[in-house]
Simulated assay, not measured.
Amino acid sequence: MEKFVGAPLFERQARGLSLTDAGAEYLPFVREALERLRAGSEALSRSRRDNVLTVTMSPNFANKWLVPRLGDFAESHPDIDLRISAARRHVDFAVDGIDLGIRHGTGDWPHLHVTRLCPELFYPVCSPAYAAEFALDNVKALTQVRLLHDQDQARWREWLAAFEVDPTLSEQGPIFSDTSLAIDAAVAGQGVALARSALAALDLKAGRLVRPVDNAIPAPIAYWIVCPRATADAPNIQALRH
């Protein structure tokens, strides 16, 4: 190791070894590497041995996409004990005890096994009663009602501009910190949300929401299933991925 780093790491003494200054500086990195190896080995062993599958994703995705589908998964895979961790941050699989994640982004995580879950569109949604009350049958009509925003007004501005409507007309209506809250507000008849297709699909299917116009724009990012490369072929992980 000393040859590899190009510096003496130990002082040889009659009663044993002690660290040099370089060795003391190097020690925390060695400890971290060993800990990651230990945690990674445990994760690999657990994924191939246990029936527990721990999955992480954003609260939005857990609420609007995964939770409504849990019954079907449990029926198809009664032997898998699924654990859901809803978190906004990207976890460290080696140290957080997570088997698989669903991430929203470009898919550029080169150290992970990555599978695209679904492409996404942005389109307006509202309750059936709201669409009927305000006769929302064209893009311009949407600018005359309350628009529901996800985090900021930028997405509505982009959508209106794509269909040649003055984007400044979007600068009204409440702003929600979570996409799922904006969708729930639309279900409750509070206005029109610009929804991600993956998150609105089940509310549309159930009739709680409608698309007042067909106009949509592609989202620049998508949802991806990610896991460590070493565990990508584990049976439990394959069951959820497929």
Score class of each variant (00 low, 15 high):
29 F>T: 10
30 V>Q: 04
31 R>Y: 09
32 E>C: 08
35 E>A: 14
36 R>F: 00
37 L>Q: 10
38 R>K: 05
38 R>H: 08
40 G>A: 06
42 E>V: 13
43 A>R: 10
44 L>K: 04
45 S>F: 01
47 S>V: 02
48 R>V: 03
48 R>N: 15
50 D>Q: 13
51 N>C: 13
51 N>E: 14
52 V>T: 13
53 L>S: 09
54 T>M: 03
54 T>V: 12
56 T>K: 01
57 M>Y: 10
57 M>K: 06
58 S>D: 03
60 N>A: 11
60 N>R: 00
61 F>V: 01
61 F>Y: 05
62 A>I: 01
63 N>W: 04
66 L>S: 08
68 P>F: 11
69 R>D: 09
70 L>N: 06
71 G>Y: 04
73 F>W: 14
73 F>Y: 11
73 F>M: 04
74 A>S: 15
74 A>R: 14
80 I>N: 06
83 R>N: 12
84 I>C: 02
85 S>T: 04
85 S>P: 03
87 A>R: 07
89 R>C: 09
91 V>Q: 06
93 F>W: 06
94 A>I: 01
94 A>K: 09
95 V>G: 06
97 G>V: 10
97 G>I: 10
98 I>D: 02
99 D>K: 02
99 D>L: 06
101 G>M: 03
102 I>S: 02
104 H>A: 09
104 H>T: 04
106 T>R: 14
106 T>I: 02
107 G>P: 07
108 D>L: 14
109 W>I: 07
109 W>M: 03
109 W>V: 11
110 P>V: 07
110 P>K: 10
111 H>Y: 07
112 L>Q: 13
112 L>E: 15
113 H>C: 00
114 V>P: 08
116 R>A: 14
116 R>I: 08
117 L>Y: 05
117 L>T: 08
117 L>V: 04
117 L>D: 05
118 C>E: 15
120 E>V: 04
120 E>Q: 12
121 L>D: 02
123 Y>K: 07
125 V>I: 05
126 C>S: 14
127 S>D: 05
128 P>C: 06
129 A>M: 05
131 A>Y: 08
132 A>N: 05
132 A>Y: 07
136 L>T: 11
136 L>Q: 11
137 D>N: 13
137 D>Q: 11
139 V>G: 08
139 V>E: 04
139 V>F: 00
141 A>F: 00
141 A>H: 00
141 A>R: 13
142 L>S: 04
144 Q>T: 11
145 V>Q: 09
146 R>L: 10
146 R>P: 00
146 R>V: 13
147 L>I: 10
147 L>C: 09
151 Q>H: 12
151 Q>D: 11
152 D>E: 12
152 D>P: 12
153 Q>H: 15
154 A>M: 13
154 A>L: 14
154 A>D: 15
156 W>H: 15
157 R>D: 13
157 R>N: 11
